[in-house]
């Protein structure tokens, strides 16, 4: 897959990968920019273009690693971006999934409780995800701020413990897909079910790409800071 550069336009980005729509939105970039290049748009919106490209390319391409760009923007920018992503999950994605799941249950013509159990499983997943988000916001992000500002920080929770974290939360979303696609009796409205699944797939993809930004951008930057401070 191609790598996006500053001469590209928003249309190139979205036409290539429409999953980038919410990503550019997190930067405050709207549609309707006519033929402006990404570079021009970033200038207008006061966005670091290297940072913008590092994020969209990491998001767009699993094998992309922004080695050169890493030094040209602050980890604090990433934290700000990640927080916006969290807000997108909690304020938009999760409520949307819940609404669809609720509609799906209402459409069920049988008297089985299968979908109710699925909903309970979903809520279990949600509570773990929210806990994970809370951990990041309350522990990881403040740690990043302290590291960047060269302040001392509690060695008990460091980047190395953070590196290993996300995993079980990921397997639950996969289990949810599996249960619905393979095992639930299809006594519901199919179109609602498909819409729920498509939303779930989109959400899963976004979460995975979000995790990759943490692993490929944030953590290498923090390790670099740590190395510099130890010298």
């Amino acid at each position: 897959m191609d790598i996006f550069v500053k001469e590209h336009k928003v249309f190139d980005l979205i036409n290539n990968n429409y999953h980038l729509l919410p990503v550019i939105n997190r930067f405050g970039v709207n549609l309707g920019n006519k033929d402006k290049t990404l570079n021009e748009i970033c200038k207008i919106n006061d966005i670091n273009i290297d940072f913008f490209l590092a994020i969209v390319n990491t998001y767009n391409n699993k094998d992309y690693f922004p080695e050169k760009e890493l030094k040209s923007f602050s980890p604090l920018m990433i934290v700000k971006y990640l927080k916006k992503t969290h807000t997108y999950y909690t304020n938009y994605m999760l409520p949307k999934l819940e609404k669809l799941l609720h509609k799906l249950i209402e459409s069920d013509s049988s008297d089985s409780n299968q979908l109710i159990v699925i909903e309970q499983f979903y809520f279990k997943y949600k509570s773990e995800l929210l806990l994970h988000i809370k951990e990041e916001e309350e522990k990881v992000f403040p740690l990043v701020e302290k590291m960047v500002n060269n302040k001392t920080y509690d060695a008990g929770f460091n980047i190395h413990s953070y590196e290993k974290e996300h995993s079980d939360v990921d397997s639950k979303i996969n289990d949810l897909k599996n249960l619905i696609i393979k095992y639930i009796e299809p006594t519901y409205d199919e179109n609602i079910c498909y819409e729920f699944l498509v939303t779930l797939f989109r959400f899963e993809k976004d979460i995975n790409d979000h995790a990759r930004i943490e692993d490929n951008i944030l953590i290498p930057q923090l390790l670099e800071i740590e190395r510099a401070q130890n010298e």
Binding site: I118, Q120, F121, K124, S171, D175, L176, N178, L179, K182
Partner: peptide, 11 residues
Amino acid sequence: LGIKSVSGLTV
């Protein structure tokens, strides 16, 4: 089953 988590197996 393709199901990993304990809660998923419970479901």
